[in-house]
Design a protein around this nucleic acid. Structure first.
Length: 82
DNA sequence: CCCCTGACACTTA
DNA sequence: ATAAGTGCCAGGG
């Protein structure tokens, strides 16, 4: 586990319910505003349920991807954003 | 060390 | 508004 991913997971973990963060936002939080690609990579490799990666969406407001299936991510967001 | 990949973002056509 | 191209960062082979 690299420090980068560790930081990314930490940030994503701080995302409260009904709240979403863009990959760029997380990247800025970790100190790499231009590393949104790496952030997505980290989350993609991450399979830990302790990290609400489904709260992380694209800056466009789109769902983006999810290691468990975007459909599920969309559903989860809808449920908690409710 | 170099090349490829990836859950993105921005610019231009 | 949508599609395609380019730029970016980190990890793995």
């Amino acid at each position: 586990m690299t420090r980068f991913q560790e930081k990314v997971y930490n940030i994503v973990r701080t995302i409260p319910c009904g709240r979403t963060m863009a990959y760029a936002e997380v990247a800025k939080a970790v100190g790499r505003p231009r590393a949104y690609r790496a952030v997505g990579n980290a989350l993609n490799k991450n399979y830990d349920p302790i990290v609400p990666c489904h709260r992380v969406i694209r800056s466009d407001g789109k769902i983006g991807g999810y290691n468990r299936g975007q459909k599920l991510k969309e559903k989860l967001l809808c449920e908690e954003t409710r």
